[in-house]
Nucleic acid binder design. Structure first.
Lengths: 347, 347
DNA sequence: ATACTTTAAGAAATCGTTATCATTCCCATC
DNA sequence: GATGGGAATGATAACGATTTCTTAAAGTAT
């Protein structure tokens, strides 16, 4: 079968117009649902459009209208499950608005970030959603004058820059407080070395909770970690070598919590029997971990939805209710924590 | 700060030309690296371009050239970790080629699939990658005459339709054979009811392996399942109620394997002590399952890379070496299987 | 010195759509 | 019966780039 390939054969508005016996603008009006077309004419044109399977050329439309109907989403990486719900949330909102999603990943390379931002500037998309942006990227974007919204803004929230984040501090606070309320006194935190703003707030929340309960802040219980499974594992091994090991571990995120589980299992210790564990993020697999992980839910889909909604408003030059939105985290209690009793201590 | 917003201020070729004191086509020639521009002229134009931060308008370029530099990737859904590496592979290849990725999800609704395909036809992208396509979608695409490549083609491989898949049959065969070689005789399979071609081949491989070992095909050991964790759980509960339960379970995919783990744990049975388990796909978390899951690796990133490479060739009207590519799966041995000894049986 | 080639640059047409502004026609109004 | 106004349609000019073709200038060969 001979393949019809692209431009061959595909009708244009002009041809449709000729076949329908009307002018080009009239067809355009029909396509754009404008009022000033008489019903019979409209019907006739619609029939021809239907019959010939005519579809508008987007490039031409984009050129004329100055809008592409495309939005950029720039993620730090694609092989990280964490970003999936963000992506999904963005996709949902954009689909509802008839806008399409151009996805790119910077692989954590800020130079690439800036480079990609340049490609937005060329009118190829109408705006950008940037996840975990670098400072350079933010400045570059501000200079460019294009609509953008940041997700998980890294540094101090500069006023006026539209962004969406989560209540990391509160999440850390609530998780730690929960462990304290169960009677734990020596509570470790993993993830001290991560530079992301959310990570910094998380540990601040942890410290504040200890402080509020008048518990000492033992530096030995605050472990390095860059939020990988391996970091959770390593940190846990080190923690258990301490003369006075912790009875509970706030893992900083779920991946590190998985590492904690692995280390404990290797040492024939049980969760929560020997150690209580709390994660952060609420990745899908935490539910099927053994035991199911108590964690702090990061509303990632909402993050995506909110950011996309804001961006669409910016693109349409509508005002934003709030330029900086912070979405609440939610404590999810499962089965990886238990009260610290004297009996348990003795065992 | 007053925002420069889109068309405001942004220079066009015409303005660059005027500033540089040359004509419009000359600037275009410089931009496109054409030979017929004298070196001093070229330098001068380049300097102006640099100074004003000029970037080409993609829409105009796309309209004139008939190519958008965009490729569609249509996934059944976004909240499924399985597709991530495919996405990543596609993104890698496209990035290298300077082509951008438009991502959409059909949420498993074939009508949406066809609808989205229509949007390609409007010159908004140069070609489509379609994952797990429905029959309607394939036919629609063939009629449209646009370049496309299928990933995980569902039905009988029609000749000439470019597609990439994995050796599901062999994967099923190898996994089952491994269990047989460990001495297992009653080996269950979960996932009989899934309609996807890969699922069907997987169970065929399982059956073939049993057959080759002259083992009986017990229908009771072939459980329904649609590849969710819950299905794995339910099936396992049912299997263990059998008068003669299996000693090994080939879970069909990793998610179902996670369900198997959960069911077994609930019944205080251990993996692989009481039951050996094998998964399929090699999702990231199988490594940190407890015990780490023996599984069959599906080369998903390669799937994406290969499909994207093929599509780019089609778009450039180059010939394809192979129209149907099948990538090999790989057996990954971890710690969820063990030899079946009489002792174990007795216990 | 003349004719012929090569090189560099520009004029004009074009891609397919939408926006602006006229024009035509018809009907209601005074 | 002339006039005003609304409704429907179309002529034309953008949008910003690329392509083709022409022209001017410079270089080369005879």
């Amino acid at each position: 079968m001979a393949k019809r390939h692209r431009t061959d054969e595909r009708p244009t508005i002009a041809q449709i117009a000729q076949i329908a016996g009307v002018s080009v603008p009239t067809v355009s009006k029909v396509l754009n649902d404008r009022a000033d077309v008489a019903l019979p004419t409209r019907k006739r044109v619609e029939r021809v459009i239907e019959e010939y399977g005519f579809v508008r050329n987007r490039a031409a439309r984009a050129l004329r209208k100055g809008k592409t109907g495309l939005v950029d989403l720039i993620l730090p990486r694609l092989d990280d499950e964490y970003y999936l719900p963000i992506l999904e949330g963005v996709a949902q909102v954009l689909r509802e608005a008839g806008v399409r999603l151009v996805l790119t990943s910077t692989n954590y390379q800020p130079e690439q970030e800036v480079q990609w931002i340049d490609t937005v500037t060329d009118h190829s998309t109408d705006g950008i959603l940037l996840v975990l942006p670098s400072d350079e990227a933010i400045e570059h974007l501000e200079r460019s004058g294009w609509p953008f919204v940041l997700i998980h803004n890294q540094r101090s929230p500069r006023s006026g820059v539209p962004s969406v984040t989560i209540t990391s501090w509160e999440g850390g606070f609530v998780a730690t407080t929960h462990l304290i309320s169960l009677g734990h006194r020596r509570i470790a935190y993993i993830g001290k070395t991560a530079q992301a703003r959310d990570a910094i707030e998380r540990i601040a929340g942890y410290r504040a909770a200890l402080d509020a309960a008048n518990l000492p802040l033992d530096p030995q219980l605050q472990c390095a970690g860059n939020f990988t499974e391996a970091d959770g594992y390593t940190a846990t091994r080190a923690l258990l070598e301490l003369p006075e090991p912790p009875t509970a571990i706030f893992a900083g995120n779920d991946r590190q919590a998985a590492g904690v589980y692995r280390a404990l299992h290797e040492l024939d210790m049980t969760v929560p029997g020997d150690i209580s564990v709390i994660g952060f993020d609420n990745l899908p697999y935490t539910e099927i971990m053994n035991p199911p992980l108590t964690t702090v839910h990061a509303p990632r889909m909402e993050l995506g939805r909110t950011a996309a909604t804001m961006l669409l408003r910016l693109i349409n030059r509508e005002a934003l209710d709030m330029t900086r939105v912070v979405l609440p985290t939610e404590f999810i209690e499962r089965q990886s924590c238990r009260p610290l009793s004297l009996e348990t201590e003795a065992k």
